[in-house]
Design a protein around this nucleic acid. Structure first.
Lengths: 208, 208
DNA sequence: GACATATTAGGGCATTTGTCCTAATCATGC
DNA sequence: GCATGATTAGGACAAATGCCCTAATATGTC
């Protein structure tokens, strides 16, 4: 699907395949995997359902592509956070802040990673593990930052803990549509990182 | 659907309607609301799809019934915890322990309350609020226990926080199928309750 | 301009979905 | 043992589902 600009010249454009993945990504997030049909995606892209089959033979193939896309986007985001911040504490805060930045969508649809993982688990879908691998990217990256903070022993534990905390915030934000809860939890998490920074003992007190 | 015992006498039996709700409850949990069809439920109960319509006109009606059932079951569970334990701290620990008791199912299907709430949010389903009301039962009950612990001011905040923490644990347990993470988080949460008990200051340190 | 390939539209397929109707069967009180 | 209402089975319905085929069109190369 090539698009021509006003001047009549061909414009560099994303491929139809990429457009499909883009729309599917969003639809899967906002409506769920099962809740999104071939027709929904085709309509969103603006192509016929037949054309669809040329690019993806099954719905699972689209899911696979969407997960790959999300992994790539996640890697890019983590790299950007690493580049933008000099200290590991600031980097971890960047992670925590996605709860604030995406609060509106989170209150409407939850966390894209967590909800997909949960849905695929229920469907007993083979791609559940790949979906969980996105969590793995965050986990490893966060563990690296905690290690840089001097938490050698507990780096992975802290990473898992923080991931879980943010998932809990997302679920509750969706259930109660409560923005203030998101903010207070984010504040608590940020304070915790700062405290870890100042007193990297083994048993770190936390403000609640 | 009446059932006869070995002696030929009619047995007091749960109604077909109740059987439908029972199976639907389980199927909705293990396969999701959208992932479960009329036919699935009818097959599980062992009745024809036609008979189904006599008891529930629409799928949403079944969902409504399932949510009501879950609310009733939740109330009963909370009452039991209150009756079984004398101290508010022990009652809160009873709540935390469901993560341990149901760890296998949680690793397979997540938390029944959280996953239903998230799915209905994505489907933009009218029953999402009612699903969240189940969270409300836990929230109010937990807040009551924290109040009894002397946390007048922060009772609701602590209740929401604990609810969120347990949701986070459930999501991560499902994603990574990691039982040890569940246990360590549960230990941390229990330690936190004990600490609150001993030193009910406004800013309570927490072990991590 | 001719050609091979890449891409697209349109429709069709069997199956499943939620919903609904009708006729048969059951239980129960008279 | 009969009448009445409650319950059930079985099937029908249109719409939607995931999947697939074919013919047409566009694209890039020689």
């Amino acid at each position: 699907m090539l698009v021509y600009g006003a001047d009549g010249f061909k414009m560099a454009r994303i491929s139809t395949r990429e457009q499909i993945l883009q729309e599917a990504d969003q639809l899967f997030y906002e409506g769920g995997f099962e809740g999104t049909s071939f027709a929904d995606i085709a309509a969103a892209v603006g192509i016929s359902r037949g054309n669809f089959y040329y690019h993806f033979k099954t719905k699972d193939e689209i899911l696979d592509g969407v997960i790959s896309r999300r992994m790539e986007a996640t890697r890019a985001m983590l790299d950007a956070w690493a580049a933008e911040n000099d200290s590991p504490a600031e980097r971890i805060v960047s992670f925590i802040r996605i709860l604030i930045d995406n609060r509106t969508k989170i209150m409407d649809f939850g966390c894209p990673v967590g909800t997909l993982s949960s849905e695929l688990a229920k469907l007993d879908h083979a791609a559940q593990e790949r979906a969980a691998d996105i969590f793995g990217l965050f986990r490893d990256w966060l563990a690296g930052q905690f290690r840089a903070l001097g938490q050698e022993e507990r780096a992975d534990e802290l990473a898992l803990h923080l991931l879980g905390r943010s998932q809990g915030v997302a679920v509750m934000a969706t259930a109660f549509r409560d923005e203030s809860f998101v903010r207070s939890e984010v504040d608590a998490l940020e304070a915790r990182v700062q405290a870890l920074c100042l007193a990297p003992s083994n048993h770190q007190p936390e403000e609640n």
